[in-house]
Simulated assay, not measured.
Amino acid sequence: MQSKISLSKKYIASPLNYTGGKLKLLPQILPLFPKKIETFVDLFCGGCNVGVNVNAEKIFCNDSNEKLIEFFNYLKNTDYKAFFRQISKVIEEFHLSNTAENGYSFYGCNSSAGLSSYNREHFLALRENFNSLQTKDSYYFAKFYILIVYAFNNQIRFNSKGFYNLPVGKRDFNKRMSEKLETFMSSIANIEFTSKDFREFKTEILTQNDFVYADPPYLITCASYNELDGWNENNEIDLLKMLDKLNERKLRFALSNVLSAKGKVNNILDSWLNKNPEYKCYHLNFDYKNSNYHKTERINKADEVLITNY
């Protein structure tokens, strides 16, 4: 039976509610990682919930979303207080709600109903302004972050023309958001952020003391990152081949994925597992329990798994 991290442990949370974020699964995932890691590589870092909580001598967090990585690099090289001042300026300039200072009743809203009715027109004005920006300065990144905070489910989504296109959400930049941002910014100094296609990451520089984690978009689930053919069968096959090559070099890896969801089965992943019986597959759930891989299909809910070669 694998050891488990205590549920009382405090994890550093990403300031972004990135689709597929692993914060809630960290108590299951991290105990399955190697105990000693020299260089940790997260090929699809997303919101960076995993990378910022891993204990390693050197950490690479990579993602093909250039805007995301630019934002993280900005946070890494910026003082929180200076960024907070920029955030406050954006909120004030676009007349967005600030319940941390004024409460909900000031805006004719309550916590249950949310702030979308008040913020909608102000949010759309900010979104239009952001999509017209050409210079990526501190003001740009403050607007980028506030767009995400005030957007539906605090998520990131761009259309095919590169324009941010989510509608307004129910919440604003509250005290909890501020605390998450400050803690995250103070915890990423040792992370190197890169934006490459996973196939372009130079894994040849890695040694047997290093560790690669892959959390790609899930082929059989519907999410914003799968729009516009963002992840397809060819990508899935290329990633699995890459992991096999790492295994041949005796490099350790872990893969997060979904075997089945809502009646669909990831046949590519299932076939790959059958061809590699030495790989271990752990089913994950929100009861914080782990179990070894069994050939039992779980139809009614997503069968999210962690696959390792060690």
Rank of each mutant, 00 (worst) to 15 (best):
Q2D: 12
E200R: 12
D42Q: 10
L269G: 03
G103Y: 13
F144E: 03
A151G: 00
L181G: 09
Y164D: 00
F84W: 13
R127A: 03
R171I: 04
D244T: 09
G230N: 02
F130Y: 04
S195T: 14
I5S: 07
Q208K: 11
N209T: 10
F71M: 03
E121K: 15
K170R: 05
V212F: 09
E179N: 11
L284W: 05
N235M: 03
F158K: 01
G230Y: 02
W272D: 05
R171L: 07
S186Y: 14
E192Y: 13
E304M: 10
Y282W: 11
N266W: 04
A302M: 09
A113R: 10
G169A: 07
R85K: 15
R249H: 13
D303G: 05
K202D: 09
N110G: 02
I156G: 02
F286R: 11
K289W: 06
F72T: 01
G108K: 12
V54Q: 03
V265L: 12
S186N: 15
L133P: 07
S224R: 01
P217W: 00
D287G: 09
H122T: 08
R85F: 14
Y164Q: 01
K250H: 08
F106L: 07
L68P: 00
K275Y: 14
A56N: 11
E121P: 03
A13L: 12
K9P: 00
N119F: 08
T135Y: 07
L284N: 08
N17K: 06
E93Q: 04
N226C: 06
Y80Q: 08
R157Y: 02
R298H: 10
I87D: 04
K289F: 06
F130E: 04
Y288L: 12
L115M: 05
L239C: 01
Y288P: 13
C61D: 15
K136N: 02
R199W: 15
Y118F: 14
K4L: 08
S271K: 13
F184Q: 03
N232V: 01
A214L: 01
F198W: 01
M185L: 13
L26V: 10
E278L: 13
L126A: 06
K180L: 10
V149F: 14
Y213Q: 06
D79R: 12
E297L: 13
Q2G: 09
K136V: 08
Y225D: 00
F253R: 10
K180D: 13
L7T: 07
W272Y: 11
H294C: 06
N73D: 05
W231F: 03
I91K: 01
N190C: 05
F123K: 01
A100L: 12
K262D: 15
L32Q: 11
L96Y: 05
K36R: 12
E297W: 07
G47C: 06
L181F: 06
S160H: 14
F201E: 12
